[in-house]
Computed example of a mutant assay.
Amino acid sequence: MTVSGEFIAFLALALVAIIGGVLLLNLTKVVHMVVALVFTFLSIAGLYVLLSAEFLAVVQVLVYSGAISIIMLFGIMLTKHNDEDDESPSVGRWKRLFLLLGILAFGAVFYIGIYDLDFGTTPVALHENNAEQIGMELFSKYVIPFELMSVLLLVAFVGAIVLSRKDDDEKEAEKE
């Protein structure tokens, strides 16, 4: 078995994605969790590059690593939260044990699911007009879900503004 640079890049990016996900679950400060999530998003963008889906990699970096992470940070800043850890050490041990068992079970099920998987040998036009192919699929077959998601994001954004305004109005009422 020869080890190629692509294989080493895949292993490195997969390791960063897994470490980012595990850190996301184990860190206690919310801002640190967002940083771990950004590392996971960036490594997934690198995996898209390895799959010759450069357009998806750029969208992953712009939308998820950039916009979603900043929205999460604004949400953290606009809401009240308590960073104190109030669980006992024995609960923390059980939580880590169940987390480890869950990760191992997921890995075993994933391995069993893809061990003898056969995708067939139908030729696919890869590396050719990725953005055009995605655009044709998105705006022909999936235009309704695409528009529904834009409306849902708009409603969520307006809701966040309304919720932040209520807190400001309550604070002003308390001062008077």
Rank of each mutant, 00 (worst) to 15 (best):
G159C: 09
E87Q: 11
D83G: 10
L15A: 15
Y142T: 01
L153P: 03
K171H: 14
I76M: 04
F41T: 07
D118W: 02
A160G: 14
E170P: 01
A12H: 09
M77P: 02
K166T: 11
V49F: 13
V109W: 05
E176Y: 06
D85I: 09
L13G: 03
G135W: 08
M149K: 08
S164N: 13
I134A: 05
V91Y: 12
L78M: 14
A108V: 13
H32A: 11
G21K: 00
V143P: 03
I8P: 02
Y64H: 10
Y48V: 03
V30K: 04
S140T: 14
Q133D: 02
G92Y: 07
E84G: 06
L101M: 14
Y111F: 11
V109C: 09
L153A: 13
A173P: 04
T28M: 04
M77C: 04
E176I: 12
I161A: 12
L73W: 04
V143I: 10
L42K: 01
V155E: 00
M72S: 09
T28Y: 05
F146R: 02
A173D: 10
V155T: 08
Y115S: 13
H32L: 11
T121Y: 12
N130P: 07
L97I: 14
N130W: 07
G46L: 02
V34E: 02
A160P: 02
G75R: 02
A53F: 13
D118N: 13
M149E: 07
K29P: 03
F157S: 08
L126H: 05
K166A: 07
L51R: 06
F106M: 15
G75P: 00
A67G: 09
F41Y: 12
S140N: 11
V38L: 15
L25K: 05
G135R: 12
L154V: 11
I112M: 11
V124H: 00
E147R: 09
F157Y: 08
L47I: 11
A108D: 04
A131L: 15
I76G: 00
R165C: 06
I44S: 01
A156Y: 11
V31W: 08
D85H: 12
E137I: 09
V151H: 08
V22M: 12
K29V: 10
F98R: 07
F39W: 09
A12N: 05
V63Q: 11
M72F: 10
S4P: 03
N26L: 13
G159H: 04
F7C: 04
I68L: 15
L37F: 12
S150D: 06
G159P: 04
V124W: 05
L126K: 06
L138M: 14
F7E: 14
E172S: 14
D83L: 09
A57G: 09
F10L: 14
L152K: 03
G66S: 01
M33C: 13
L23Q: 14
